[in-house]
Structure formats: structure tokens, C-alpha cells
Nucleic acid binder design. Structure first.
Lengths: 219, 219
DNA sequence: GCTATAACCGTACGTCTATATTGCTATCGG
DNA sequence: CCGATAGCAATATAGACGTACGGTTATAGC
């Protein structure tokens, strides 16, 4: 048998290079030549590991999504293990959606680019859908398992609550991306906190719907 | 003087063609040749009206955004003129964000594509930002002007409320796009209604935070 | 009706891209 | 130690793209 290489690692090098290029210059700037250069290898080698560019991009998106939902899962699991309330737990988990630091901003850009691409690519769309329903169902399960003021929530449509709270988080993430100046970190996290508190601690601490608990627009 | 043409109309034909192409095949599939064919003219003529492809795309995005926020404005204005409550008014206006029919789905796809592109193009980003802050500030003004249970809302940070409700709507829009099957029209509109009711009619009709008013997942 | 000029067309050019192909190199099994 | 084979590199190729450019047509003003 001939020489061997760590197939998985090599593919990882390539998809990581793709990610960096997407973050820096967008998905349109990703060419196999540039990817090879970024990964420090030849174009021929990239071809050796991905028969076509589409496969390379699909693998990249799959990896990103896997890592992403794994991280959300882990945070929810930890929250449950530590016996946190639903609000506390989801706050930790959903903050992962937001582009609040460089790492998460980078990931957000990649997800955004592929979200667009997925609109006209069935395989990317499938990966996207899978990830989204996975996260939503994990959140729903957490809501079902979780406690509010020491009691388990019941009678609520957890799947629906999950949709709403995840959608809210993603909307905030988008706004943070589009206009960070008028949507500062503090305001976004305050909004998320407030919303979670409003929904998941309402049975003991009555919400005061007319008043905002926002921390204002601190720079 | 030589023959004259309706400059504005011609440019409109071209940007409309770009929009159709984006909807059908995505922004990457937009070439000047294809755009010319779609618009029923020659490549030379497209060049005559847009010196470069970038200008063409920028003009397209600008037009889309202008139309979009004009429509939101109009709906808010109408709601105010008809003396609707904040919740009723915003429900009408924010439904415009969602891809619930073919026309709005098309517009959503265009906005999504350009949102991605704007991440690495300063001019597109500026247009995007402008549109977003415009809509948010209009919504904020509507909240300040609006009534809840016959009374004007006061003491609330309207800008912050606007951010939250618009972000929520956009998050729902994104989920509708990504997975229409598990995020049906009815559920999305119910979520929006419920959220608006929860926030803007709380002073008279106490919210019951633990219970969901969702209409279920009807096909 | 002449003419200047905008409107409009077709094509050629240079660049960039994905991918096919060819060949070299290192190493594992025998 | 040797050859089969995977790992890897370099180049060739065919096509698509944006845009420059030369040419044609029609019309507004004189």
C-alpha cells in the first residue's frame, strides 16, 4: 500500500481555509486556487480531497453547522446539568447565535453567506433546515424539561415557544450585524434577557409590559 | 439634439430584470449578458445605463429598499390615520417583512442575497443600514404616537421596543424561509400577533406568560 | 434636409475559473 | 528491496465573465 494521509484532517484544513476566505472576502471570492493557497497546498491536492467545488462548499457548511449546533447543545446540556432555569439556560445558549465577538462574528458571516447560497441549492438547504430544526427541537426539549420559579412548565406549546425565542435571537443577531452602532452588545443582550424573563419567569414575577428593562444604548 | 429615451424607465427595466434573476437563480447567476437578455435588450445598452456591474447592483438594491420601506411607511401611516392600536398597526406593517406570498417571498430573497453581499461591500452596507434604521425609527415613532387601550404609551423606550419587535419579525421571516414546513404561515402570524399583543396591550389585558396563543401548526 | 449626438447593437479582448490530465514521489505490504 | 498505489504538484484546457470599442440608427434642433 502507498503512503497514507489523515483524510479527515486534510479535509478539515481545506474547509477551514474556505471559512477564513468567506469571512474575509465573501463566498464569491472563494475559488479552489485561493482556497489551496490559503490552506497552504496545491490546487491538485484540493481536488484530490474534493472531487468538485460544490462538494467542498457543502462539506464546509456541514462542518460549520455541526460545530455550531454542537455548541448550542452543549450549552443547553450544561445548563440543564447545573439545574439552571429556562431563562438562564437559554440566555447562555442563544448568545451563541449572535455576532458579539470576533469568533462568533466570523461564524455568523459564514452562516449568512451559506444561508443565501442555500436559497438556490437543495443540498445546502437540506443541511440548513436540519440544523435549524435540530436547534429548535433541542430548545423545545429544554423548555419542556426546564423549570420556572422551581416548577416545571406545563401546558405550553414548547415547540412554538422555541420557534419564537430562537427567531427573536436570530433577528437580534441580524440587526447586530447590519448596524452594530445602533444595536450595541449591551442592548441586544438586554433585549434577549428581558424577553426570556418575560416569557419564562412570568408565573412568579409578573411582567410589566409597558416598561422596558433595556440597559439603554451604551457605546 | 438626438433621440431621447426615458432614462428612469430604462434603468427600471434593468433593475427589475436583475431582481427576477436573483429570485430565480441567485445573485451569482446575475451577469450583464443574462440581465440584458432578461430585460430584452443588448449588453451594450445595459452598459449605456450602468457604467459598471456594481452600479447596476447598487441601483437594484437601492430601488428594492426604497420600495420596501415606502410600503412599510405607508402601512404604518394608514394604521395611524385609521386610529388603530399599536399592535394592529404593526401587525399590518411587519407582515410585509415576511415571505408569505410569492411577491413578498421574491422580495425577501432579493433582500437576503444583498444582505450577504453587503457584508463585503461598503456601499451596499450603507444602503442596508439606512433602510433598517429608517424602518426602525418609523416603527419607534409609531409606538410613541400610538395608543394602547385608548391611552398613549409613555415611559417606554420606543426605539428599543422597535428594535425588538422588528428583530422578532425578521427572525420569523428567516425561519419561514428556511423551513416553511415546520414554520407555517399561520404559526408565524400567530406568533407575531401574540408577541405584539403581549407587549402593547399588557396594561389592560394582562399577559399570561406561561400559555401560548398559537394557532397550532395548520398546513 | 442636414447634422450633431444620444440611443443602441454586436463583438472582440483579456482575465479568471473549474476541472481534466499528466507525471513525480514517498511509503506500505510482500 | 521493490513495485503498486495513494499523496501531491504543475500545467493545460475550455468556457464564462466584465468591459472596451467600433459601428449603426434615429431624432431633435437648426
Amino acid at each position: 500500500m502507498p503512503r497514507v494521509a489523515d483524510h479527515h484532517a486534510r479535509r478539515g484544513q481545506i474547509t477551514d481555509a474556505v471559512q477564513r476566505l468567506v469571512v474575509r472576502h465573501g463566498l464569491t471570492a472563494v475559488t479552489v486556487a485561493r482556497t489551496a493557497a490559503e490552506a497552504g497546498m496545491s490546487v491538485g491536492l484540493v481536488q484530490h480531497y474534493f472531487t468538485a467545488k460544490d462538494e467542498m462548499l457543502l462539506a464546509t457548511f456541514t462542518r460549520v453547522n455541526r460545530r455550531f449546533s454542537a455548541r448550542v447543545d452543549e450549552l443547553v446540556n450544561r445548563g440543564e446539568a447545573e439545574g439552571r432555569t429556562i431563562a438562564e439556560m437559554l440566555r447562555q445558549a442563544l448568545a451563541e447565535l449572535m455576532p458579539l465577538d470576533d469568533a462568533r462574528r466570523a461564524e455568523f458571516l459564514v452562516r449568512l453567506a451559506f444561508t443565501d447560497q442555500a436559497a438556490h441549492n437543495a443540498r445546502l438547504a437540506a443541511v440548513q433546515r436540519e440544523t435549524h430544526v435540530g436547534i429548535r427541537s433541542r430548545v423545545a426539549q429544554a423548555i419542556r424539561n426546564g423549570t420556572v420559579c422551581g416548577e416545571v412548565v406545563q401546558g405550553t406549546d414548547a415547540a412554538d415557544q422555541a420557534l419564537r425565542i430562537v427567531a427573536f435571537a436570530e433577528g437580534l443577531a441580524l440587526h447586530t450585524h447590519i448596524d452594530p452602532d445602533t444595536t450595541p452588545k449591551s442592548a441586544v443582550l438586554a433585549a434577549l434577557d428581558d424577553q426570556l424573563g418575560r416569557v419564562f419567569t412570568g408565573t412568579c414575577r409578573r411582567a410589566q409590559p409597558g416598561s422596558s428593562a433595556a440597559g439603554g444604548t451604551v457605546p
